[in-house]
Amino acid sequence: HEITLHINGRRVKLRFRDEKAAEILKEAAKKGLDEEELKKLAEELWR
């Protein structure tokens, strides 16, 4: 699955395995994680 989040006016595509991962990524984006941090988090969730 993929999700596209808008971060600092940019579109960031993240891959994720399940809905739980999608929710975690959305929450992290709301908390203000930047693009690099979100990509790292997405990679961690993928494993």
Rank of each mutant, 00 (worst) to 15 (best):
H1K: 11
H1F: 15
H1G: 15
H1W: 14
E2Y: 15
E2G: 03
E2L: 11
E2A: 05
I3Q: 02
I3C: 04
I3F: 07
I3V: 07
I3M: 15
T4K: 03
T4W: 09
T4V: 14
T4Q: 06
T4I: 15
T4A: 05
T4Y: 10
T4S: 07
L5V: 10
L5H: 01
L5M: 07
L5G: 00
L5P: 00
H6Q: 11
H6T: 15
H6I: 15
H6N: 14
H6L: 15
I7Y: 03
I7N: 02
I7T: 05
I7G: 01
I7C: 04
I7H: 03
I7E: 01
N8F: 04
N8I: 02
N8V: 03
N8G: 08
G9Q: 03
R10V: 12
R10N: 07
R11M: 15
R11D: 14
R11S: 15
R11Q: 15
R11N: 14
R11H: 15
V12E: 00
V12I: 13
V12C: 04
K13T: 15
K13F: 05
L14Y: 04
L14T: 01
L14S: 00
L14D: 00
L14K: 00
L14Q: 00
L14H: 01
R15E: 02
R15S: 03
R15W: 08
R15C: 06
R15P: 04
F16G: 04
F16S: 07
F16L: 06
R17M: 13
R17L: 09
R17C: 05
R17Y: 08
R17W: 10
D18Y: 06
D18E: 08
D18F: 06
D18N: 12
D18L: 03
E19M: 12
E19T: 10
E19S: 11
E19Y: 11
K20E: 09
A21M: 07
A21K: 02
A21N: 07
A21T: 07
A21Y: 05
A22G: 14
A22C: 13
E23M: 13
I24T: 10
I24Y: 08
I24F: 08
I24C: 07
L25F: 08
L25S: 00
L25A: 03
L25E: 00
K26E: 06
K26D: 04
K26M: 14
E27M: 12
E27H: 09
E27V: 08
E27G: 08
A28Y: 09
A28F: 08
A28R: 04
A29Y: 13
A29I: 12
A29W: 15
A29D: 02
K30T: 12
K30W: 07
K30H: 12
K31T: 11
K31M: 15
G32F: 05
G32A: 05
G32P: 03
G32Q: 05
G32D: 04
D34M: 10
E35A: 10
E35F: 11
E35R: 06
E36G: 11
E36C: 09
E36I: 11
E36N: 11
E37I: 07
E37R: 11
E37T: 10
E37C: 06
L38F: 03
L38N: 00
L38G: 00
L38C: 04
K39A: 07
K39H: 11
K40D: 10
K40C: 06
K40W: 11
K40F: 12
K40M: 13
K40G: 08
K40Y: 10
L41I: 08
L41D: 00
L41R: 02
A42D: 01
A42M: 05
A42P: 00
A42C: 05
A42F: 04
A42E: 06
E44N: 09
E44W: 15
E44K: 13
L45N: 01
L45C: 02
L45P: 01
L45F: 04
L45K: 01
L45S: 03
L45T: 02
W46D: 03
W46Q: 02
W46I: 03
W46L: 04
R47F: 14
R47L: 14
R47N: 14
R47V: 15
